[in-house]
């Protein structure tokens, strides 16, 4: 670990000042400290924001849900409103990491977490994300866990978050506070595909702070859920996952919100699958025909070809679990 200075801030203005000066924000620290130990991250200044008043979960009258950036994963998962309104969020959180990590890690930190690509985390390997221009060791290396969607020749790593897949599906908005004031960014625009600049991962301006993630109101009744496919039954990142939310009225699907995880360089929204569902009646054949679109545009690597088929099956299964067949 490289030497660094540490400051703790007590209000957002202080935080922004420190952030503008180049400080790195730290909350739960469950990713950042890990990466500092491996010297993947070498921040000179850590700005501890865990004392900021961003720990509330609020529900607006029209049903929108706002989760403060510093709400712990465990708190969000257990929150009665989250559980009732958006099971897909609480399920995604509960299937993440371990209980200990969920008690420390925050929602803001979760969506900021960096890839699990083993070459990224090994400082002696080539990685364009860690060291732009050095090459991508994963492209022709061991890439079983890597992405099949949204990749480039510069980077094929997945975004590891589960709850971000739920946020992507639900078309959440990220609330930001910066030196120039507040703004909101649609979730789809917040996390960036690697392109030729895989070191740029979020649409954040210098010193900007995530203050909350907001889930817009959706028509009710809404059924939702999260399915995670992985080798072992706990404490592992997804091979594939699917976040599904469906609004069915009069036996017809009126709204569908679907995204996949473990397969994309960012949480992968599936608009073509959603389109297939709208106006249709739930049925086994509908789930199958819609899910068949899930891997459109996939580019498989040597060790992750199985993900193409597995992704379609994961989406189909979760459509059936959430939507039923009647």
């Amino acid at each position: 670990m490289h030497p660094f200075t540490y400051t703790r801030v007590s209000d957002t203005r202080e935080a922004l000042n420190a952030g503008r000066g180049g400080g790195r924000y730290i909350a739960g620290g469950t990713t950042l400290v890990d990466l500092m130990r491996e010297t993947v991250e070498q921040p000179e200044t850590l700005v501890d924001i865990s004392g900021l008043p961003l720990r509330e979960i609020t529900v607006a009258e029209h049903g929108a849900l706002r989760i403060g950036a510093l709400v712990r994963m465990a708190e969000a998962a257990a929150h009665p409103k989250v559980r009732v309104l958006y099971p897909v969020i609480s399920e995604a959180l509960e299937l993440s990491a371990s209980a200990q990590l969920r008690n420390m890690a925050t929602i803001g930190g979760n969506i900021m977490q960096r890839t699990r690509c083993t070459y990224f985390r090994d400082v002696t390997a080539d990685c364009n994300k860690r060291e732009p221009g050095s090459g991508c060791a994963a492209l022709h290396g061991f890439n079983r866990s890597h992405a099949i969607l949204g990749t480039s020749d510069h980077c094929v790593s997945t975004h590891p978050s589960d709850v971000a897949v739920a946020f992507a599906a639900l078309e959440a908005r990220v609330h930001l506070l910066g030196p120039d004031g507040e703004r909101q960014v649609p979730f789809a625009d917040f996390l960036l595909r690697p392109g030729s600049t895989p070191d740029r991962e979020q649409a954040l301006r210098r010193g900007e702070l995530i203050t909350a993630v907001e889930i817009p109101a959706l028509p009710r009744p809404l059924k939702s859920g999260y399915l995670k496919v992985r080798d072992r039954q706990s404490y592992e990142f997804a091979l594939t996952s699917a976040a599904v939310a469906l609004h069915v009225r009069g036996g017809v699907i009126r709204e569908a919100r679907i995204a996949a995880g473990g397969v994309g360089t960012v949480p992968w929204k599936l608009p073509e699958v959603e389109q297939q569902l709208i106006g249709e009646r739930p049925s086994e054949s509908l789930w199958a025909s819609a899910a068949a679109k899930a891997a459109d545009g996939a580019r498989a690597l040597q060790h992750n070809r199985f993900k193409v088929e597995l992704l379609k099956r994961t989406v189909e299964r979760q459509l059936r679990i959430v939507g039923g067949t009647k």
Binding site: Y119, F142, S145, R232, Q233, S234
Partner: peptide, 20 residues
């Protein structure tokens, strides 16, 4: 390609956990 062990940690080398 270079003899590197790519999963030299307990997140990527999977041992059974209680749930398994």
């Amino acid at each position: 390609r270079d003899g590197r062990i790519v999963n030299a940690n307990l997140a990527d080398y999977l041992v059974a956990v209680n749930a398994d």
